[in-house]
Amino acid sequence: MKHVKQNLPAILLFIVALVIWEGTVRLLSIQKFLLPAPSVIWTSFRENFDRLTYIGWFTTREALGGFAIGCSTGILVALATSRWTLASETLMPFAIAANSVPIIAFAPILNNWFGIDNPLSKMMIVAVIVFFPMMINTVRGLTLIDPAALELMRSYAASEFTILRKLRLPNALPYMFNAFKVAATLSMIGAVVSEYFGGNRSALGVFITQEAAQFRFQNSWAAIIIACVVGLVFYLVILGLERLAIPWHSSLRAQQS
């Protein structure tokens, strides 16, 4: 009940926006290929439901696979380099620079390496995209530590491994969840956009471009909405996991009690 009340303004705004959209398109009789009305998109959605869910799931798997590969290597590299301060200090500027490179531009090359039809080529693009924010944030979380907390652990003569387990990792969790949230959004965008450069016939991005090429824009729109919904759900799942994993963190305290 509380949630409904909290989100009521957002829901209302959403409905109002839909109504305005529908109304404007009808009143000004805007061409379907410029902007289809929500009702038209909805019809397309119902008519193509089976195909849309099939290709939606196909691309979601690519996003999930890339997310898993990219995040896990990002965390592993962060763990390895933060162990040796010199290594992480040498690597960090490169990682930060690489993070601002539009990696999606490499999509055609990775398509070529792994095979354009192969979902692995898209997973690798997604993996490379999410790798850098994941690694950078994890290194920050592992190294930005209250010096007094480190002194406390040293006063217990704790080993580096114990310090990692009891101090560095818990300290890194909030940073890592921030990276997971960014990565969740990026992975769906990365998967769909990389499919624009060609891919399997049952991929969401391929469907969007092909339907658009044949002026069936309402179908493209329906597919785009699927991509949005999947991205949103992915993000919300991470948000939920974050609440379970780090309820103590200051960003989540206000929502408690």
Binding site: L152, A157, H249
Partner: peptide
């Protein structure tokens, strides 16, 4: 002595782990 954990320390700040 530190390696043998011969002492306990109370720091000027509490230094409690927030998690």
């Amino acid at each position: 002595a530190r390696l043998d954990q011969d002492y306990g320390m109370v720091f000027q700040a509490p230094v409690l782990f927030e998690w």
